[in-house]
Design a protein around this nucleic acid. Structure first.
Ligand SMILES: [Zn+2]
Ligand SMILES: [Zn+2]
Length: 396
DNA sequence: GGTTGCGGGGTGG
DNA sequence: CCACCCCGCAACC
């Protein structure tokens, strides 16, 4: 697996819990107490992998997964077991523009899932079909979580035999978007018309709700949470690294050699030049959500603002207040000297932002102020950053 | 309305 | 024992 390869290749220590995975099992009385380091959170764990996360890793704390995993009673309160619900697909096997397929996230709640199956494909209105997971001896893939001291031990059994569903965030965005009839973020669909039109009217044709429901397998959204008081910068870097691992190399088509210096710092220990291909390549085909804490803003700035020595900071950053207390920073295409594919991103606020006027928060800053502007915003609370590679579109 | 964790109870190997 | 499943409850969002 590529991500495994790059994980191992890039970790400071040659040994990870993955490489040592054969040495322990989630059911062991004694688990490894001295891992050289904790693992980067994996959103799409597959195969029979094991990880040791820091107990301060919020994603691990919440037992998050990109797969739709539901709680399973294993009559063991020390080990949390979850099993995969598969993916909801269109029974017509329809294809949306740009070759995207319909891979909806099964509802976790049984009742909600049944109700969900009586709904219709957002693309062709055909009936939906639940593809159940049979990746573990004919049974659903199972995940196990165990909290022990400063670590969270994770183990998965089975290999998913179905496509990835939309992420929880994508699913939520789609539902909200459908209700509010507002724009939905898309990872691959261009935003042809005025963003202001959409956000001010709050209306969009149904067709435009498709992008987030029609999931490109290479455009999965991440939920990585950096709002972690105990998480140090190295872990933040690790998580960012992980993002890049998973999404930059998913197709194996973005050679490290093409990474720019800043990114390649995260991507490789020895290969650097000043190309931006990694930024404009596969990384950009993912939508990532980060939850930042002020402690990590330096990292944030380094990655998103200082990624390119030739890049200018964002100007005319436009923050839009959403009905759900979410804000979006819409990238202004007129930013000079910044490759759109690089700086395209979406800042999605989780909670209150003071200076929101008429539903819009405009953050204008120059080179030196760009970071501080972000600082100020981040210190209000934790925020989600949706980093949209190809295009910008409102999330809600 | 949903997600998540918990746990009782059942079935079968 | 193990595995899997169903169900309801409660906390939380
Ligand atoms: Zn369809
Ligand atoms: Zn599965």
């Amino acid at each position: 697996m590529l991500s495994h390869y790059f994980n191992s290749a890039m970790e400071p220590e040659p040994t990870s819990s993955e490489s040592k995975g054969i040495n322990w099992d989630i059911n062991d009385m004694k688990l490894p107490q001295d891992p050289e380091q904790t693992d980067w959170f994996q959103e799409w764990p597959d195969s029979y992998v094991k990880h040791i996360y820091s107990s301060s890793n919020r994603n691990a704390q919440r037992h998050l997964s990109g797969w739709a995993m539901r709680n399973t009673n294993n009559h063991n309160s020390r080990i949390l077991k979850k099993s995969c619900l598969g993916v909801l697909v269109c029974s017509n096997d329809c294809t949306a523009p740009e070759g995207r397929k319909v891979y909806l996230r099964p509802a976790i709640c049984d009742k909600a899932r049944q109700k969900q199956q009586s709904k219709y494909c957002p693309n062709c209105s055909g009936p939906l079909k639940l593809i159940s997971c049979r990746g573990h001896g004919g049974f659903p893939v199972t995940n196990f979580w165990r909290h022990e001291g400063p670590y969270i031990y994770f183990q998965t059994k089975g290999v998913h035999d179905h496509p990835k569903p939309e992420t929880k965030l994508e699913s939520e965005s789609r539902k909200v978007g459908h209700k509010k009839r507002t724009a939905i973020v898309t990872t691959t669909l261009g935003l042809k018309r005025s963003r202001n039109d959409e956000t001010l009217t709050g209306k969009k044709p149904d067709q435009e709700n498709l992008p987030s429901t029609v999931v490109d397998q290479d455009s999965q959204a991440l939920l990585y949470d950096f709002n972690d008081t105990d998480m140090d910068h190295s872990e933040t870097e690790n998580t960012l690294n992980n993002c890049l691992n998973n999404y930059n190399f998913g197709k194996g088509s973005s050679p490290l050699e093409n990474c720019d210096p800043v990114w390649s710092k995260h991507l490789s220990r020895d290969t650097q030049n000043d190309s931006n291909q990694c930024i404009g390549g596969e990384i950009i085909n993912s939508t990532m959500e980060f939850d930042f804490y002020s402690e990590d803003q330096q990292m944030w700035s380094k990655v998103f603002f200082a990624k390119n020595p030739h890049a200018q900071p964002l100007e005319n950053l436009c923050w839009e207040k959403s009905p759900l207390h979410s804000c979006q920073a819409l990238y202004n295409q007129q930013i000079a000297n910044v490759e759109p594919s690089i700086m395209d991103g979406l800042l999605n606020f989780k909670s209150n932002v003071d200076n929101v006027h008429d539903g819009m928060l405009h953050v204008n800053h120059n080179n030196s102020a760009s970071t501080s502007a972000v600082y100020r915003l981040c210190q209000e609370d934790s925020y989600l950053l949706r980093y949209n590679p190809n295009h910008f579109s409102p999330i809600l």
